[in-house]
């Protein structure tokens, strides 16, 4: 019995160790990456429910009408929400700590945005030497 609980602890502790040392988490234990800047284009409540509609609307405007304003532009989202850590690295789209994935993984909603869209700001790509 004692050995079993020892095994159980061995299993449980690493599972939750990240919560003590890792990225910020909300009350539900989901990771909340810190954005830069002061405020989003809409209040958080609105963004949580409407971000996909805003993005879709903007997507078609950009694609078909060539309207490339900054509001609701995926590139602007990335510039604010994909921020480098102390080592100058950012989370990548597949990581649990990536801004979009932190919720989308928890909610089991898969997105394919980052199959085609870069998952970090232009500066970071340039720093990596991939682009002049």
């Amino acid at each position: 019995m004692r050995f079993a609980s020892f095994l159980f602890l061995l299993w449980v502790i690493p599972l939750h160790a990240g919560e003590l040392t890792g990225p910020d988490r909300d009350a539900n234990g989901n990771i909340v990456p810190t954005p830069k800047g002061e405020a989003c284009v809409e209040p958080a409540e609105v963004m949580r429910r409407e971000h996909m509609n805003l993005l879709l609307h903007k997507r078609d405007q950009t694609m078909y009408d060539g309207i490339r304003t900054k509001r609701a532009s995926l590139n602007e989202c990335i510039d604010c929400h994909v921020t480098p850590d102390a080592n100058g690295k950012t989370a990548r789209a597949d990581d649990e700590t990536f801004f979009c994935s932190s919720c989308h993984i928890a909610a089991s909603v898969s997105i394919d945005c980052f199959d085609c869209h870069g998952d970090r700001p232009l500066d970071m790509i340039k720093n990596s030497g991939l682009q002049k």
């Binding site: 990335i78 085609c116 870069g118 998952d119 700001p121 790509i125 991939l130 682009q131």
Partner: peptide
């Protein structure tokens, strides 16, 4: 699979692309 696409030129696996006339 591609990564680090430029912000103004999204491109990805399994789709077709061509010159955009630098749209």
């Amino acid at each position: 699979k591609l990564s680090d696409q430029l912000p103004h030129a999204p491109r990805g696996k399994g789709t077709v692309e061509a010159c955009t006339l630098c749209v």
